[in-house]
Design a protein around this nucleic acid. Sequence first.
DNA 1: GCGCTTTATTGATTCCGGTCAAATAGATGT
DNA 2: ACATCTATTTGACCGGAATCAATAAAGCGC
Lengths: 235, 235
Amino acid sequence: MNKIRQPKVEDLRQFPLLSGLEESEAKRVLDKARVISVDRGEPLFHQGDPARRIWLCRNGQLKLFRLSDSGQEQIIALINPGRSFAEATLFMPERLYPVHCAAIKPSELIGFDADDLVESLHRNPDACFQLLGTLSRRMHEKINQIESLALQNAHLRVAHYLLEEYRRREQPATFRLEASKKHIAGLLAIQPETLSRSLATLQREGALDMDARFITIRDPGKLDSIAHGALPAPH
Amino acid sequence: MNKIRQPKVEDLRQFPLLSGLEESEAKRVLDKARVISVDRGEPLFHQGDPARRIWLCRNGQLKLFRLSDSGQEQIIALINPGRSFAEATLFMPERLYPVHCAAIKPSELIGFDADDLVESLHRNPDACFQLLGTLSRRMHEKINQIESLALQNAHLRVAHYLLEEYRRREQPATFRLEASKKHIAGLLAIQPETLSRSLATLQREGALDMDARFITIRDPGKLDSIAHGALPAPH
DNA sequence: GCGCTTTATTGATTCCGGTCAAATAGATGT
DNA sequence: ACATCTATTTGACCGGAATCAATAAAGCGC
């Protein structure tokens, strides 16, 4: 964690939760907010740390993750620019971060003061509803993640993940994976070796092409049917 | 889904989210609320159904779950008396239930009208904060569930689950499992056979005793160390 | 652009936990 | 209490994915 600066008003406007604030309110919140830079690989906070700040990623990329006793890492979410995180800690009885956070790429964040935000929320019912919406959406994502971990095997999870990325971008065919394969494996709760083998199989099946971090979906229908259990005959 | 009746004001007071409402507000919400009974095994709603009601379990027991393409069921949460559910749907762009719900035992619920609740929330910032707290707590639970699925093997999950139940009750030693072993297996994302074997091992190790649905923790320390990876030597 | 660290791929092997099967014990409803 | 249906336990077996190992390919910092 490096340089520390003052964020500007423009930065706030990116933050959906606070984009509707009045001028005076915005000024107050910004006053206690700070811009913070984190080097690649460096932690922003650890699980169990007091959650004094709520974060907005301005650029770079971070991961939220848990660690097992044996050092295995499970990625809970990848954070890309424009994404805020840790809002849920505002309302926990003990305000502690429930996960670790570290930068995957050199990153720049805005850290809002937690008490400050709660005050603003008290004065802005609309912002409360915004936040309720955000948390609800995240909850839904988590349920999907649980289903995926519990009900789908490694190949299905990979196929599902690719389909979702494909659809999310709207501009089909070719796209770049949002992170290294190692991190994507961590997100899908599989080993990098398994991801590698899965992608090789999908390629062999003609569902997609791959060039380093670039994926080209050749046959979305086939990918979809694989994602729903039409597992190609094991060699 | 059977008989339909009017809930009484007392019922509302159990519901943390609305327990602070003014008399007039409470009356309005109750007016559109209904008591609904569900027989054992019967569904209350299906995944994808329009979420017109938010529920409070008054008695009985229900499960929230997802189904895989092959019919496997993953339990997302067990619902016991006093627990409300489906609040998060209020703030989703599409108000649809994200999971299935069915009664495990004959159950009685109060169904609150969704639009009605949103109105109440608009008028009661305190209730908003209540709800933000509830959703935050659930989010935390989901993160724990993800970690458990991704980072722990079957035996660790079982040991962890038992420890949590043991601690949650505060009154140590002996307690009754909150559901059938089949359902607990569904919650832990393992097969009933595996749960059976895990429990047998824990018994053999002297960590606990078991009599049908009653568990007696004999050695919490041992259970804890097993939950953290001190896997007993496989026979 | 170069050297070095990190990431990705592929093969061989192991083992956890799922599946199938069968027997027993419990529950439920009438 | 009876008959039936469901839940639980135990054994045998199999397969998917982790692990270990070795090599190749990128990506990064200077």
